[in-house]
Nucleic acid binder design. Structure first.
Length: 816
DNA sequence: TGTGCTTCATTTTTT
DNA sequence: ATGAAGCACA
């Protein structure tokens, strides 16, 4: 033990922790009970709840952090406090987040508090990055080499397809994507093929699911690869089967912290529990009300059960909200109180009441986009920034209407979480080259690029290579002597059972090598393959001497990839070249190819360009953790939000998760939240009449303004039976027509005759008027409404270029 | 190997 | 509506 201490202190003195050590010294001289009192000044600036969370350093701790209660601050301060109080060493703290962004942010903020940490906090990262790091050192325990590849979802699906095909199952009826999803969900629950419950085993292809899963795992092992789920699964396996390994981590890691605990799945829970077993110093931070990832395996139960799972856990509630004004917070709280399964918190703020939450009904999606765009323009004219506005939708398709409107009005916008850099084909191609140079086992990488750029090695040739790879080895004697087995180095003579029961005796590269000296392949393909193989060998050779950045440049150049893009006249080719430049540049930040690929497999999010002056367009999911002064929440309609599928598939559980999503949405707002819903909506090109979301009924009337400025008679939340019958003389909206076809409304649409009372008028001139006890709507083109004689309204209806006056209404004084 | 036509699905998304 | 993916055919 002594030598260990000596080593540690030398290590500490040798690197950039000097100022941290000074902090340590001052506290370390105190008895443990007094250390908290002598805490550094940053702890003093916290509110009492936060401080309690920060200072509970030992034993299990559950921090229930409501939206906007300073969760990140608590987390980072706690980590800093842990270090500066001397309670834990930088290499003894395991701090887990879900996203790379979150872990990056945490690292930065801790460094800000404690000064630059140099190589400190090696165990701060995502579940996956930490697991990958661990697995690299224990790969052999699960039958992998330590240079294993981490497959991206695309490779994963490709592999699934191959397996499904090989098993003689119709890939069209049972798509690889579905199998991937199924296996993923099993892995989320830490189920190995043997452990999959019998009743679920039949979920795919009439009972082949589990078998395919087992084959898939075997194939991965052969390919020296694993997928994201495996990173955790393998480590759980190692921990369970090799207590000595687990113990080394127990010895190393004294304290653990987990962010967003409500989003952990079963596998992550097991992983955490195994690691926390010894020290019990596990602090989890989360908010059961913001658990919105059930569909990808998150178990709210993990957080609900924490006190039970970790007896003696200290629970700290953070309920003081620093983000939103009173009405917004009250609205969100009132809404979420409708959920049954929750630990319960009451958020409060000292801030002023601020604006009431606006709820507005509109005619259709277009009107909604117009309304919101106009609001944004108004905000801008009030000298506020576009970037302060966010439009948060339930599903990605809802963004289109807004994008169209924004483009038309020249409002700059940015889609949060748009297409990701690492998903781009060209980036993945380069990675495939690098992966193949690093490990010949990587058949998927080989397949991806063997004909990229085009070399004349087509699908047919690849088929033959596959077939050959599956043939039992035979002795080949060439001019250069006999061929050797890839792995053992022995001359290949014997027929052997392929490992894992899968049919592969050689890597595809191995097969290619052999087939370039036989005449089974057409000459053209053979020559092409041969030169491709010698390229690969040459690059591999070079990679020992040159940096990985140079390697990438050489590969891009010599493979003809760059040239291919240069010759490509399509507009995307230019972007692709730029992406590649960015890629090569970003590689420079990593010391080795290994380090880079590791990073790539797990993260590779090139920093998004700065937000600048853009309206933020996002799904509700992607907006979690963000905040904006002005938030629009459009599309609050039954079956859209709450999503029909969610409720259909998961019943009340699904509905509650949708409600949490609504809660997340509202609590993103600082100053103003504006909810809207339409009566008609185009969904996948089909018009549908839709009803206001039940969530609208659940809003507290006292904190909400129901505005009918553009709506058609929605007076207050709770009024659901508003008349949505649209009609007109001469013009019927597609939505109305469809509704009529479905028999949604009985009787004939009323016809305008005589006088009607105008209730409201859209900015674009759509008229909403009341006759008798019903409210009707008349849809018109933009800017074609004229007021005549004070309160008499004339509408010009522009149809096929021909303008004609079709109607006039008398406007009651109250609406004018 | 490359093309043009048909079919199909279409919540949310990280690693 | 829309776009991706699969498929038959040149």
């Amino acid at each position: 033990m002594l030598w260990l201490r000596a080593l540690c202190s030398r290590f500490v003195l040798g690197c950039a922790f000097t100022d941290r050590i000074e902090l340590n010294d001052s506290v370390e001289n105190l008895p443990i009970s007094q250390r908290a009192a002598a805490a550094p000044p940053y702890v003093a600036s916290l509110n009492p709840e936060q401080r309690a969370a920060v200072e509970a350093l030992d034993g299990p701790v559950l921090v229930l952090a409501g939206a906007g209660t300073g969760k990140t601050r608590v987390l980072t301060t706690r980590l800093a406090h842990l270090l500066s109080s001397g309670r834990a060493k930088p290499w003894g703290v395991l701090a887990v987040t879900f996203t790379n962004k979150a872990s990056r942010e945490m690292r930065e903020r801790v460094e800000k508090l404690l000064g630059p940490g140099g190589g400190g906090l090696p165990w701060l990262g995502t579940f996956h990055s930490i697991s990958a790091r661990m697995l690299r050192t224990h790969a052999e325990l699960v039958g992998l080499k330590n240079n294993f590849t981490i497959l991206d979802p695309d490779d994963q699906i490709r592999l699934m397809k191959q397996i499904i095909d090989a098993e003689g199952i119709d890939e069209k009826r049972w798509p690889g994507r579905q199998l991937a999803g199924l296996i993923d969900s099993w892995k989320n629950r830490a189920l190995t093929p043997e452990k999959v419950p019998k009743n679920e085993a039949f979920a795919f292809a009439d009972g082949a699911g589990v078998k395919l899963y087992a084959i898939y795992q075997a194939r991965l092992r052969i390919l020296n690869a694993c997928d994201f789920g495996d990173l955790l699964m393998h480590m759980i396996d190692v921990f369970q089967r090799h207590p000595d390994v687990l113990q080394t981590y127990h010895r190393k890691i004294s304290h653990m912290m987990v962010d967003e605990y409500q989003d952990t799945n079963v596998a992550q829970y097991l992983w955490l529990r195994l690691l926390a077993q010894a020290s019990k110093n596990l602090c989890v931070v989360g908010d059961d009300d913001q658990s919105i990832y059930g569909w990808r395996g998150a178990e709210v139960d993990n957080i609900l059960r924490f006190e039970h799972d970790f007896p003696g856990a200290k629970v700290v509630r953070l309920e003081r909200n620093y983000r939103s004004t009173g009405h917004i917070l009250a609205t969100a709280s009132h809404l979420i109180a409708n959920n049954r399964g929750r630990l319960g918190k009451t958020l409060f703020t000292d801030d002023e009441d601020g604006n009431r939450v606006k709820v507005r009904g509109v005619w259709d999606g277009e009107a909604e986009a117009r309304l919101i765009a106009d609001d944004i323009e108004q905000w801008r004219q009030g000298n506020r920034s576009y970037a302060e506005c966010a439009v948060l939708v339930r599903a990605a398709w809802q963004m289109r209407a807004f994008e169209e409107r924004f483009l038309m009005l020249r409002i700059p916008y940015k889609v949060i979480g748009g297409p990701r850099f690492f998903e781009r084909a060209e980036v993945r191609d380069v990675h495939a080259y690098l992966r193949l140079i690093r490990s010949e086992d990587d058949d998927l990488a080989f397949e991806r690029i063997v004909n990229q750029p085009k070399r004349g090695v087509g699908e047919g040739t690849v088929q033959k290579l596959h077939a050959h790879a599956g043939k039992p080895p035979v002795r080949f004697v060439t001019d250069n002597g006999p061929l050797f087995d890839e792995d053992t180095g022995e001359v290949v003579t014997e027929q052997a059972e392929a490992p894992g029961g899968a049919t592969r005796f050689r890597t595809l590269i191995g097969a290619a090598r052999e087939m370039t000296i036989t005449d089974e392949l057409p000459l053209k393909a053979r020559t092409a393959l041969r030169s491709f193989l010698s390229d690969l060998d040459r690059w591999r050779e070079k990679s020992r001497e040159i940096s990985h950045v140079e390697l990438a440049e050489i590969v891009l150049d010599e493979s003809g990839y760059t040239e291919m893009l240069r010759n490509d006249k399509s507009p995307q080719a230019q972007t692709r070249l730029e992406n590649l430049k960015e890629l090569v540049q970003s590689m420079g930040q990593y010391d080795t190819l290994e380090a880079y690929l590791e990073h790539v497999a797990l993260v590779l999010d090139i920093e998004a360009e700065s937000d600048g002056e853009n309206v933020q367009l996002s799904t509700l999911h992607a907006a979690k953790g963000l905040e904006f002064p002005l938030v629009f929440l459009p599309g609050w309609e039954e079956e859209v939000f709450p999503s029909k599928r969610s409720v259909d598939e998961n019943g009340d559980k699904g509905l509650e998760e949708e409600r949490r999503l609504a809660y997340v949405g509202i609590t993103r707002a600082r100053e103003s939240a504006r909810i809207s819903f339409a009566a008609n909506r185009q969904i996948y090109g089909r018009w549908q009449v839709v009803l206001p979301s039940r969530f609208i009924d659940e809003l507290p009337a006292a904190n909400v303004d129901a505005v009918s400025e553009t709506g058609y008679g929605m007076q207050a939340p709770g009024v659901r039976d508003m008349a949505v019958e649209p009609f007109s003389s001469g013009y019927q909206s597609p939505g109305w027509r469809r509704a009529q076809e479905r028999g949604a409304f009985k009787g004939k649409p009323p016809v305008i005759d005589g006088e009607a009372r105008l209730v409201a008028r859209s900015g674009d001139g759509d008229a909403h008027y009341r006759r008798g006890d019903r409210i009707f709507h008349q849809k018109f083109g933009y800017g074609q409404v004229r007021m005549v004689d004070g309160n008499k309204l004339t509408v010009d209806f522009d149809k096929a270029g021909e303008k004609r006056v079709i109607d006039s209404f008398v406007v009651p004084a109250s609406a004018a």
